[in-house]
Simulated assay, not measured.
Amino acid sequence: MTEPERPVVLILGAGGVGLSLAGALAGVARVAVACRPRHAAAVRRDGLVMEGVWGERTVREIACVAGPGEAPPAPDLVIVTAKGFDTRAVCEEYADVLRGRTVASLQNGIGNEEVIADYAGTVIGGTVTTNFSVVGDGHVRVKSQSSPMVFGLWSGPDADALPRLVDLIRSAGILVEASTDIRSAKWSKSLLNLSVNPICALLSIPVGKAADPRLQRVIREIVSETFAVMDAEGVGTRWPSAEAYLDHLFAVQVPDFATAYPSMYYDIQAGRRTEIDLLNGYIADLGERRGIPTPYNRCIADLVRFREIDERK
C-alpha cells in the first residue's frame, strides 16, 4: 500500500516562528519556506538545526525559496509568519500564489487577517504563545510553549480547511486547538503583547520586572483603555473586565515569562522596526475613530517609534 501524498505547505516569513514551524512540519508535509539568503544558504548546506521543546534535531527536508517564482505554484496551505508591518508587502509579492488558496496567519498583533483576506481564498487566524529565538543562521531554539497554538476560521468558503490545518499541526507533535471565535483569541493574545512588551522593550527589562508597582500603574491604564476600545468594537474575551485580565496577567502570565525578554526588545536592540502599530498604535487609532481617549497607548506607541528611529541611526 502506498503512503498518502503529503500536503504542500508554504511558509512566508522565516524568522524564529517560521523556521521553527518549517522544521516541525517537515516530518509530516512537503515544506517550502521563504528565507533570507543567509538562512537559506545555511539550511541548504547544513540543514535546519532545531533545539528546545519541539525536539533536538537537524532537518534537511526543507526547500528554501527566494521569491514567488521558486514557490510551489499550488500549495495546499500557506502560513504567514512575517512581521505584521510586512503583511501587505508579502501578500503583494506572492499574490499569484495566494489567490484562491487557504492562508493561515500566525502573527502578532491585530489586523493581519483583514489584509490577507484581500488576496486569499480562505483565511485562518492563529495565535501562538511560544518563546522562539534564532540562535544563528539556519539555527533556531524553541524555549517553551506555555499554551497550545490556537487556530480559527476567519473568512472564506472552505469550512474544512480549519480541521485539516489543526490535524496537520497536531500530527507534527505541536500542541494545538481549534477556536470557534478566533477574533476573541487574537485580542486575548494581544493583551499580553501590548500591556507588557513595549514597556520591557523601552526599559530593557525582562517580563518579570513588569510586576514592579511603579510599572503596574502604567500597565493598568493601558489595559483599561484597551478594554474600553474592545467594548466599543464588540470584541469579548474570556476575561469580562480589565480588572479580571490584570489579575491573570500579574498572577499567571508575568510569572510564566518572568525571565524572558519580548521580541520587541530584540527588535529595538537590533535596530529593527517593531510591530507597535499593530498593538498599542492600533488601539490608539481605533480609540480615535471611536472617540475613546487612549493617552497611555498613544504615548507608549510614540515612545517605541522614537526608539526605533533612534536605534537605526
Rank of each mutant, 00 (worst) to 15 (best):
E3R: 11
E3K: 04
E5F: 02
G15M: 10
L19V: 13
A22C: 09
R30W: 03
A34V: 12
R38K: 13
A41P: 00
A41F: 06
G47W: 00
M50F: 08
E51H: 15
V53T: 13
E61K: 07
A63E: 15
C64N: 12
A71I: 09
L77E: 07
V78R: 03
T81V: 12
K83H: 11
T87K: 04
E92T: 11
E92N: 13
A95M: 01
L98G: 09
R101N: 11
R101I: 06
T102V: 15
L106N: 07
G109D: 07
G109P: 02
I110E: 00
I110G: 00
N112D: 01
V115E: 07
D118M: 13
D118K: 15
Y119W: 07
G121R: 04
G121L: 08
V123T: 06
T129I: 02
T130M: 11
F132S: 10
G138L: 06
R141M: 05
Q145I: 12
S146I: 14
P148Y: 01
V150R: 12
F151H: 02
G156K: 03
G156W: 00
A159M: 00
R164G: 08
V166A: 15
D167I: 05
D167M: 05
L168G: 14
L175Y: 01
A178N: 01
A185Y: 00
K186M: 14
N193V: 08
N193M: 10
P198C: 07
I199G: 01
S204K: 13
P206V: 03
K209Q: 10
A210K: 02
D212I: 02
P213Y: 10
L215A: 07
R217I: 01
E221C: 14
M230D: 02
M230K: 12
D231R: 15
D231Y: 03
E233G: 04
V235E: 13
R238N: 11
S241K: 09
A244M: 07
A244V: 12
L246S: 09
D247P: 00
H248V: 09
L249W: 01
F250N: 06
F250W: 13
A251S: 15
V254C: 04
P255H: 07
D256M: 11
T259W: 00
Y261D: 00
S263T: 06
M264F: 03
R273F: 09
T274Y: 03
D277T: 11
L278K: 12
L279H: 12
Y282D: 13
Y282T: 04
I283A: 11
L286W: 08
P295L: 10
N297T: 08
R298V: 01
I300T: 10
A301N: 01
L303C: 10
